[in-house]
Write a protein that binds this DNA or RNA. Structure first.
Lengths: 210, 210
DNA sequence: GGATGTGAAAGTGTTCACAGCC
DNA sequence: GGCTGTGAACACTTTCACATCC
Protein backbone atom coordinates (compact mmCIF):
# COMPACT_ATOMS: atom_id res chain seq x y z
CA UNK A 1 0.00 0.00 0.00
CA UNK A 2 1.38 3.41 -0.95
CA UNK A 3 1.38 6.02 1.78
CA UNK A 4 0.05 9.11 0.09
CA UNK A 5 -1.76 11.94 1.76
CA UNK A 6 -5.41 11.01 1.54
CA UNK A 7 -7.88 13.87 1.05
CA UNK A 8 -10.46 14.18 3.79
CA UNK A 9 -13.10 14.42 1.09
CA UNK A 10 -12.08 10.89 0.09
CA UNK A 11 -12.74 9.59 3.62
CA UNK A 12 -16.19 11.18 3.64
CA UNK A 13 -17.00 9.54 0.31
CA UNK A 14 -15.66 6.16 1.47
CA UNK A 15 -18.13 6.31 4.34
CA UNK A 16 -20.91 7.08 1.89
CA UNK A 17 -19.79 4.29 -0.46
CA UNK A 18 -19.74 1.82 2.41
CA UNK A 19 -23.32 2.55 3.32
CA UNK A 20 -24.35 2.37 -0.30
CA UNK A 21 -22.66 -1.01 -0.59
CA UNK A 22 -24.52 -2.24 2.49
CA UNK A 23 -27.74 -1.22 0.77
CA UNK A 24 -26.77 -2.93 -2.50
CA UNK A 25 -25.64 -6.03 -0.65
CA UNK A 26 -29.04 -6.33 1.05
CA UNK A 27 -30.60 -6.38 -2.41
CA UNK A 28 -28.50 -9.44 -3.20
CA UNK A 29 -26.48 -7.82 -6.00
CA UNK A 30 -23.07 -9.48 -6.37
CA UNK A 31 -21.14 -7.27 -8.78
CA UNK A 32 -21.11 -3.52 -9.30
CA UNK A 33 -19.13 -1.13 -11.53
CA UNK A 34 -17.62 2.20 -10.51
CA UNK A 35 -20.17 3.87 -12.79
CA UNK A 36 -23.09 2.31 -10.95
CA UNK A 37 -21.67 3.29 -7.55
CA UNK A 38 -21.10 6.76 -8.93
CA UNK A 39 -24.70 7.13 -10.03
CA UNK A 40 -25.90 5.79 -6.70
CA UNK A 41 -24.07 8.33 -4.60
CA UNK A 42 -23.84 11.29 -6.98
CA UNK A 43 -20.16 11.50 -7.88
CA UNK A 44 -18.13 10.67 -11.02
CA UNK A 45 -16.95 7.15 -11.77
CA UNK A 46 -13.35 8.33 -11.98
CA UNK A 47 -13.75 9.75 -8.51
CA UNK A 48 -14.88 6.39 -7.17
CA UNK A 49 -11.92 4.61 -8.73
CA UNK A 50 -9.41 7.24 -7.54
CA UNK A 51 -10.78 7.08 -3.99
CA UNK A 52 -10.46 3.32 -3.88
CA UNK A 53 -7.03 3.38 -5.53
CA UNK A 54 -5.54 5.09 -2.47
CA UNK A 55 -6.01 1.82 -0.60
CA UNK A 56 -5.44 -0.93 -3.12
CA UNK A 57 -6.81 -2.69 -6.18
CA UNK A 58 -10.21 -4.07 -5.28
CA UNK A 59 -11.78 -4.53 -8.68
CA UNK A 60 -11.52 -6.76 -11.72
CA UNK A 61 -10.94 -5.11 -15.11
CA UNK A 62 -13.80 -5.66 -17.46
CA UNK A 63 -16.03 -6.78 -14.61
CA UNK A 64 -16.23 -4.38 -11.67
CA UNK A 65 -16.23 -4.91 -7.93
CA UNK A 66 -17.57 -7.76 -5.83
CA UNK A 67 -20.13 -6.10 -3.58
CA UNK A 68 -19.52 -8.14 -0.46
CA UNK A 69 -15.75 -7.92 -0.76
CA UNK A 70 -15.75 -4.20 -1.41
CA UNK A 71 -18.02 -3.65 1.55
CA UNK A 72 -15.60 -5.57 3.73
CA UNK A 73 -12.61 -3.59 2.47
CA UNK A 74 -14.41 -0.31 3.07
CA UNK A 75 -15.39 -1.26 6.63
CA UNK A 76 -11.81 -2.26 7.32
CA UNK A 77 -10.38 0.94 5.83
CA UNK A 78 -12.77 3.00 7.93
CA UNK A 79 -11.77 1.14 11.08
CA UNK A 80 -15.29 -0.17 11.58
CA UNK A 81 -14.43 -3.80 12.21
CA UNK A 82 -14.05 -3.04 15.91
CA UNK A 83 -16.77 -1.50 18.07
CA UNK A 84 -15.97 2.01 19.24
CA UNK A 85 -17.23 3.14 22.64
CA UNK A 86 -18.19 6.76 23.08
CA UNK A 87 -19.32 9.16 25.77
CA UNK A 88 -21.60 12.16 25.42
CA UNK A 89 -21.20 15.28 27.52
CA UNK A 90 -24.32 17.42 27.81
CA UNK A 91 -27.76 15.88 28.37
CA UNK A 92 -29.82 18.73 26.91
CA UNK A 93 -32.13 18.27 23.95
CA UNK A 94 -29.39 17.46 21.52
CA UNK A 95 -27.22 15.30 23.77
CA UNK A 96 -30.23 13.25 24.89
CA UNK A 97 -31.38 12.73 21.31
CA UNK A 98 -27.90 11.61 20.29
CA UNK A 99 -27.76 9.19 23.21
CA UNK A 100 -30.94 7.51 22.01
CA UNK A 101 -30.22 7.81 18.29
CA UNK A 102 -30.31 4.38 16.69
CA UNK A 103 -28.07 5.25 13.75
CA UNK A 104 -24.87 4.93 15.75
CA UNK A 105 -25.41 1.38 16.94
CA UNK A 106 -26.20 0.36 13.38
CA UNK A 107 -22.63 1.24 12.39
CA UNK A 108 -20.93 -0.21 15.43
CA UNK A 109 -20.71 2.72 17.80
CA UNK A 110 -21.81 2.24 21.39
CA UNK A 111 -22.73 5.02 23.79
CA UNK A 112 -21.36 3.97 27.19
CA UNK A 113 -22.18 7.12 29.16
CA UNK A 114 -23.90 10.48 29.08
CA UNK A 115 -22.93 13.25 31.50
CA UNK A 116 -24.21 16.59 32.71
CA UNK A 117 -23.57 18.99 35.56
CA UNK A 118 -27.22 19.85 36.26
CA UNK A 119 -28.30 18.07 39.48
CA UNK A 120 -31.90 17.93 38.22
CA UNK A 121 -30.82 15.77 35.29
CA UNK A 122 -28.48 13.40 37.12
CA UNK A 123 -30.12 10.03 37.63
CA UNK A 124 -32.70 10.43 34.87
CA UNK A 125 -32.88 7.56 32.41
CA UNK A 126 -32.53 7.78 28.63
CA UNK A 127 -33.52 4.36 27.37
CA UNK A 128 -31.11 2.16 29.33
CA UNK A 129 -28.62 4.91 30.00
CA UNK A 130 -28.57 6.90 33.23
CA UNK A 131 -27.41 10.51 33.11
CA UNK A 132 -24.38 10.80 35.35
CA UNK A 133 -22.50 13.63 36.95
CA UNK A 134 -19.50 14.73 34.95
CA UNK A 135 -17.33 13.65 37.90
CA UNK A 136 -18.10 10.03 36.97
CA UNK A 137 -16.63 10.44 33.49
CA UNK A 138 -13.06 9.28 34.21
CA UNK A 139 -14.28 6.03 35.73
CA UNK A 140 -16.65 5.24 32.87
CA UNK A 141 -14.12 6.13 30.17
CA UNK A 142 -11.52 3.90 31.76
CA UNK A 143 -13.85 0.97 32.46
CA UNK A 144 -15.17 0.92 28.89
CA UNK A 145 -12.04 2.02 27.08
CA UNK A 146 -14.05 4.76 25.40
CA UNK A 147 -12.05 6.56 22.72
CA UNK A 148 -14.57 9.05 21.33
CA UNK A 149 -16.25 11.98 23.07
CA UNK A 150 -19.26 13.93 21.86
CA UNK A 151 -19.67 17.51 23.01
CA UNK A 152 -23.27 18.68 23.30
CA UNK A 153 -22.94 21.46 25.86
CA UNK A 154 -23.48 25.21 25.41
CA UNK A 155 -20.72 27.20 23.69
CA UNK A 156 -19.38 28.72 26.92
CA UNK A 157 -18.60 25.33 28.44
CA UNK A 158 -17.34 23.60 25.32
CA UNK A 159 -13.62 24.25 25.69
CA UNK A 160 -13.65 23.30 29.37
CA UNK A 161 -15.39 20.00 28.58
CA UNK A 162 -12.94 19.40 25.74
CA UNK A 163 -10.05 19.75 28.16
CA UNK A 164 -11.65 17.21 30.50
CA UNK A 165 -12.11 14.74 27.65
CA UNK A 166 -8.51 15.13 26.58
CA UNK A 167 -7.21 14.78 30.14
CA UNK A 168 -9.04 11.46 30.32
CA UNK A 169 -7.28 10.13 27.27
CA UNK A 170 -9.98 10.47 24.61
CA UNK A 171 -8.41 10.82 21.19
CA UNK A 172 -11.39 11.82 19.04
CA UNK A 173 -13.97 14.53 19.59
CA UNK A 174 -17.19 15.28 17.77
CA UNK A 175 -18.19 18.84 18.61
CA UNK A 176 -21.82 19.89 18.29
CA UNK A 177 -21.31 23.19 20.08
CA UNK A 178 -21.02 26.38 18.05
CA UNK A 179 -17.56 27.15 19.31
CA UNK A 180 -14.13 26.73 17.74
CA UNK A 181 -12.15 24.37 19.96
CA UNK A 182 -8.43 23.93 20.37
CA UNK A 183 -7.04 20.45 20.81
CA UNK A 184 -3.51 18.93 20.73
CA UNK A 185 -2.18 17.49 17.46
CA UNK A 186 -2.83 13.89 18.43
CA UNK A 187 -6.56 14.46 19.01
CA UNK A 188 -8.91 14.29 16.03
CA UNK A 189 -11.64 16.90 16.04
CA UNK A 190 -14.72 17.25 13.87
CA UNK A 191 -17.33 19.94 14.09
CA UNK A 192 -20.99 19.39 13.32
CA UNK A 193 -22.40 22.85 13.49
CA UNK A 194 -26.14 22.86 12.96
CA UNK A 195 -26.45 26.62 12.68
CA UNK A 196 -23.59 26.89 10.20
CA UNK A 197 -25.42 24.43 7.99
CA UNK A 198 -28.62 26.45 8.09
CA UNK A 199 -26.65 29.62 7.41
CA UNK A 200 -25.12 28.11 4.30
CA UNK A 201 -28.64 27.39 3.07
CA UNK A 202 -29.58 30.95 3.96
CA UNK A 203 -26.68 32.29 1.90
CA UNK A 204 -27.64 30.36 -1.20
CA UNK A 205 -31.36 31.07 -0.79
CA UNK A 206 -30.62 34.76 -0.48
CA UNK A 207 -28.20 34.63 -3.40
CA UNK A 208 -30.97 33.30 -5.66
CA UNK A 209 -32.71 36.63 -5.24
CA UNK A 210 -29.66 38.68 -6.23
CA UNK B 1 -19.14 43.76 -6.30
CA UNK B 2 -17.26 41.29 -8.45
CA UNK B 3 -19.10 38.10 -9.36
CA UNK B 4 -16.53 35.39 -8.86
CA UNK B 5 -17.22 31.84 -7.95
CA UNK B 6 -17.12 31.75 -4.19
CA UNK B 7 -15.79 28.58 -2.55
CA UNK B 8 -18.21 26.82 -0.28
CA UNK B 9 -15.45 26.65 2.32
CA UNK B 10 -15.52 30.43 2.35
CA UNK B 11 -19.23 30.47 3.18
CA UNK B 12 -18.67 28.06 6.06
CA UNK B 13 -15.91 30.28 7.41
CA UNK B 14 -18.00 33.44 7.03
CA UNK B 15 -20.61 31.83 9.24
CA UNK B 16 -17.94 31.03 11.80
CA UNK B 17 -16.50 34.56 11.59
CA UNK B 18 -19.94 36.05 12.10
CA UNK B 19 -20.46 34.12 15.29
CA UNK B 20 -16.99 35.01 16.48
CA UNK B 21 -17.73 38.69 15.81
CA UNK B 22 -20.93 38.45 17.82
CA UNK B 23 -18.87 37.09 20.69
CA UNK B 24 -16.23 39.82 20.36
CA UNK B 25 -18.91 42.50 20.08
CA UNK B 26 -20.48 41.35 23.35
CA UNK B 27 -17.12 41.95 25.00
CA UNK B 28 -17.28 45.57 23.86
CA UNK B 29 -14.24 45.40 21.59
CA UNK B 30 -14.48 47.96 18.78
CA UNK B 31 -11.65 47.13 16.38
CA UNK B 32 -10.09 43.83 15.34
CA UNK B 33 -7.40 42.77 12.87
CA UNK B 34 -7.51 39.86 10.44
CA UNK B 35 -4.76 38.24 12.52
CA UNK B 36 -6.83 38.36 15.69
CA UNK B 37 -9.88 36.92 13.94
CA UNK B 38 -7.61 34.26 12.47
CA UNK B 39 -6.31 33.24 15.89
CA UNK B 40 -9.82 33.21 17.28
CA UNK B 41 -11.21 30.80 14.72
CA UNK B 42 -8.13 28.80 13.77
CA UNK B 43 -7.34 29.87 10.20
CA UNK B 44 -4.64 32.06 8.60
CA UNK B 45 -4.96 35.83 8.49
CA UNK B 46 -4.60 35.80 4.70
CA UNK B 47 -7.53 33.42 4.58
CA UNK B 48 -9.69 35.82 6.56
CA UNK B 49 -8.81 38.72 4.25
CA UNK B 50 -9.35 36.67 1.08
CA UNK B 51 -12.73 35.44 2.30
CA UNK B 52 -13.90 38.98 3.03
CA UNK B 53 -12.43 40.34 -0.22
CA UNK B 54 -14.97 38.31 -2.23
CA UNK B 55 -17.64 40.65 -0.94
CA UNK B 56 -16.02 44.05 -0.63
CA UNK B 57 -13.50 46.13 1.30
CA UNK B 58 -14.61 46.23 4.89
CA UNK B 59 -11.39 47.16 6.69
CA UNK B 60 -9.08 50.11 7.14
CA UNK B 61 -5.41 49.66 6.28
CA UNK B 62 -3.16 50.04 9.26
CA UNK B 63 -6.11 49.68 11.60
CA UNK B 64 -8.28 46.63 11.02
CA UNK B 65 -12.03 46.07 10.99
CA UNK B 66 -14.77 47.75 12.99
CA UNK B 67 -16.34 44.88 14.90
CA UNK B 68 -19.95 46.09 14.74
CA UNK B 69 -19.76 47.00 11.07
CA UNK B 70 -18.10 43.75 10.07
CA UNK B 71 -20.70 41.78 12.01
CA UNK B 72 -23.43 43.64 10.13
CA UNK B 73 -21.81 42.98 6.75
CA UNK B 74 -21.40 39.29 7.54
CA UNK B 75 -25.03 38.90 8.60
CA UNK B 76 -26.11 40.63 5.41
CA UNK B 77 -23.85 38.47 3.22
CA UNK B 78 -25.21 35.35 4.86
CA UNK B 79 -28.79 36.47 4.29
CA UNK B 80 -29.47 36.56 8.03
CA UNK B 81 -31.13 39.96 8.18
CA UNK B 82 -34.49 38.35 7.46
CA UNK B 83 -36.02 35.56 9.54
CA UNK B 84 -36.18 32.23 7.74
CA UNK B 85 -39.07 29.89 8.47
CA UNK B 86 -38.46 26.17 8.39
CA UNK B 87 -40.34 22.91 8.70
CA UNK B 88 -39.07 19.62 10.07
CA UNK B 89 -40.25 16.27 8.72
CA UNK B 90 -39.82 13.36 11.11
CA UNK B 91 -40.64 13.65 14.82
CA UNK B 92 -38.39 10.87 16.08
CA UNK B 93 -35.59 11.46 18.54
CA UNK B 94 -33.58 13.64 16.24
CA UNK B 95 -36.43 15.63 14.65
CA UNK B 96 -37.95 16.36 18.06
CA UNK B 97 -34.62 17.50 19.46
CA UNK B 98 -34.07 19.79 16.48
CA UNK B 99 -37.57 21.26 16.88
CA UNK B 100 -36.77 22.25 20.44
CA UNK B 101 -33.13 23.19 19.84
CA UNK B 102 -32.57 26.77 20.94
CA UNK B 103 -29.58 27.44 18.71
CA UNK B 104 -31.70 28.04 15.63
CA UNK B 105 -33.82 30.85 17.09
CA UNK B 106 -30.63 32.55 18.25
CA UNK B 107 -29.58 32.98 14.64
CA UNK B 108 -32.96 33.97 13.26
CA UNK B 109 -34.42 30.65 12.16
CA UNK B 110 -37.96 29.80 13.20
CA UNK B 111 -39.46 26.31 13.20
CA UNK B 112 -43.08 26.71 12.03
CA UNK B 113 -44.05 23.06 11.85
CA UNK B 114 -42.98 19.50 12.58
CA UNK B 115 -44.56 16.56 10.77
CA UNK B 116 -44.73 12.80 11.03
CA UNK B 117 -46.82 9.96 9.64
CA UNK B 118 -47.11 7.96 12.88
CA UNK B 119 -50.66 8.40 14.27
CA UNK B 120 -49.36 7.90 17.81
CA UNK B 121 -47.19 10.98 17.50
CA UNK B 122 -49.69 13.29 15.83
CA UNK B 123 -51.08 15.79 18.31
CA UNK B 124 -48.23 15.49 20.79
CA UNK B 125 -46.65 18.76 21.86
CA UNK B 126 -42.98 19.71 21.62
CA UNK B 127 -42.68 22.93 23.58
CA UNK B 128 -45.26 25.09 21.79
CA UNK B 129 -45.25 23.05 18.61
CA UNK B 130 -47.78 20.34 17.87
CA UNK B 131 -46.70 17.37 15.78
CA UNK B 132 -48.89 17.34 12.68
CA UNK B 133 -49.70 14.79 10.02
CA UNK B 134 -47.59 15.17 6.91
CA UNK B 135 -50.80 15.96 5.01
CA UNK B 136 -50.89 19.32 6.77
CA UNK B 137 -47.50 20.32 5.42
CA UNK B 138 -48.65 22.19 2.27
CA UNK B 139 -50.97 24.41 4.31
CA UNK B 140 -48.34 25.28 6.92
CA UNK B 141 -45.61 25.90 4.36
CA UNK B 142 -47.84 28.26 2.42
CA UNK B 143 -49.25 30.12 5.42
CA UNK B 144 -45.80 30.76 6.86
CA UNK B 145 -43.86 31.14 3.62
CA UNK B 146 -41.41 28.53 4.86
CA UNK B 147 -38.42 28.15 2.57
CA UNK B 148 -36.29 25.56 4.37
CA UNK B 149 -37.08 21.92 5.08
CA UNK B 150 -35.26 19.63 7.48
CA UNK B 151 -35.33 15.90 6.85
CA UNK B 152 -35.16 13.74 9.97
CA UNK B 153 -36.86 10.56 8.76
CA UNK B 154 -35.34 7.08 8.25
CA UNK B 155 -33.25 6.51 5.13
CA UNK B 156 -35.99 4.59 3.31
CA UNK B 157 -38.41 7.49 3.43
CA UNK B 158 -35.96 10.29 2.83
CA UNK B 159 -36.28 10.62 -0.96
CA UNK B 160 -40.06 10.48 -0.81
CA UNK B 161 -40.17 13.24 1.80
CA UNK B 162 -37.71 15.26 -0.26
CA UNK B 163 -40.04 15.07 -3.23
CA UNK B 164 -42.92 16.32 -1.10
CA UNK B 165 -40.87 19.25 0.15
CA UNK B 166 -39.87 20.19 -3.38
CA UNK B 167 -43.42 19.88 -4.67
CA UNK B 168 -44.46 22.37 -2.02
CA UNK B 169 -41.96 24.93 -3.20
CA UNK B 170 -39.22 24.61 -0.59
CA UNK B 171 -35.88 25.68 -2.04
CA UNK B 172 -33.46 24.54 0.63
CA UNK B 173 -33.12 21.19 2.33
CA UNK B 174 -31.04 20.11 5.30
CA UNK B 175 -30.80 16.34 5.24
CA UNK B 176 -30.08 14.44 8.45
CA UNK B 177 -30.88 11.04 6.97
CA UNK B 178 -28.04 8.75 5.91
CA UNK B 179 -29.18 8.64 2.29
CA UNK B 180 -27.92 10.43 -0.82
CA UNK B 181 -30.81 12.53 -2.14
CA UNK B 182 -31.46 13.87 -5.62
CA UNK B 183 -32.90 17.33 -6.02
CA UNK B 184 -33.36 19.71 -8.97
CA UNK B 185 -30.70 22.32 -9.72
CA UNK B 186 -32.60 25.18 -8.12
CA UNK B 187 -32.86 23.46 -4.75
CA UNK B 188 -29.97 23.79 -2.30
CA UNK B 189 -29.16 20.63 -0.41
CA UNK B 190 -26.85 20.07 2.54
CA UNK B 191 -26.20 16.82 4.31
CA UNK B 192 -25.48 16.51 7.99
CA UNK B 193 -24.64 12.90 8.37
CA UNK B 194 -23.97 11.99 11.98
CA UNK B 195 -22.62 8.53 11.26
CA UNK B 196 -20.29 9.76 8.53
CA UNK B 197 -18.78 12.12 11.05
CA UNK B 198 -18.19 9.35 13.56
CA UNK B 199 -16.75 7.17 10.82
CA UNK B 200 -14.24 9.84 9.90
CA UNK B 201 -13.12 9.87 13.52
CA UNK B 202 -12.96 6.08 13.39
CA UNK B 203 -10.72 6.23 10.32
CA UNK B 204 -8.24 8.60 11.92
CA UNK B 205 -8.30 6.77 15.27
CA UNK B 206 -7.59 3.51 13.52
CA UNK B 207 -4.91 5.12 11.36
CA UNK B 208 -2.99 6.17 14.50
CA UNK B 209 -2.42 2.51 15.24
CA UNK B 210 -1.00 1.74 11.79
C1' DG C 1 -15.71 -5.79 -25.31
C1' DG C 2 -15.72 -3.70 -21.12
C1' DA C 3 -14.37 -1.84 -16.79
C1' DT C 4 -10.38 -0.95 -13.87
C1' DG C 5 -6.27 1.66 -12.48
C1' DT C 6 -3.50 5.68 -13.26
C1' DG C 7 -0.40 9.30 -15.17
C1' DA C 8 -1.21 13.85 -17.11
C1' DA C 9 -4.13 17.97 -17.54
C1' DA C 10 -7.42 20.97 -15.75
C1' DG C 11 -9.61 23.13 -12.16
C1' DT C 12 -10.10 24.86 -7.45
C1' DG C 13 -8.59 26.64 -3.14
C1' DT C 14 -4.85 28.41 -0.03
C1' DT C 15 -0.67 30.75 1.09
C1' DC C 16 2.83 34.09 0.08
C1' DA C 17 4.59 38.46 -0.14
C1' DC C 18 4.24 43.06 -0.98
C1' DA C 19 2.14 47.41 -2.86
C1' DG C 20 -1.03 50.61 -1.13
C1' DC C 21 -3.10 53.26 2.29
C1' DC C 22 -4.17 54.99 7.02
C1' DG D 1 4.74 51.41 11.45
C1' DG D 2 1.03 48.54 10.78
C1' DC D 3 -2.65 46.17 8.60
C1' DT D 4 -5.49 45.62 4.50
C1' DG D 5 -6.28 44.03 -0.19
C1' DT D 6 -4.58 41.29 -3.96
C1' DG D 7 -1.87 39.29 -7.94
C1' DA D 8 1.21 35.51 -8.33
C1' DA D 9 2.97 31.11 -6.67
C1' DC D 10 1.86 27.07 -4.71
C1' DA D 11 -0.77 23.04 -3.17
C1' DC D 12 -4.39 20.19 -3.48
C1' DT D 13 -8.44 17.75 -5.85
C1' DT D 14 -10.96 16.32 -9.60
C1' DT D 15 -11.50 15.08 -14.31
C1' DC D 16 -9.77 13.24 -18.53
C1' DA D 17 -8.27 9.73 -21.40
C1' DC D 18 -6.12 5.66 -22.28
C1' DA D 19 -3.07 1.58 -21.45
C1' DT D 20 -3.96 -2.59 -19.06
C1' DC D 21 -6.02 -6.71 -17.97
C1' DC D 22 -10.05 -10.09 -17.37
Amino acid sequence: MKTLKIPEATIIRLSVYSRYMAQIKRKGIVTISSGEIARGVGVSSAQVRKDLAYFGEFGTRGVGYNVGELYGYLMKILGLTTQWKLVIVGAGKLGSALAMYGGFAERGFKVVGIFDNDPRKIGQKLDNLEIMDISQLPKIVEANEAKIGIIAVPAEEAQEVTNILIKNGLKAILNFSPRVLSVPDDVVLRNVDLSVNLEILSFYLDAQKR
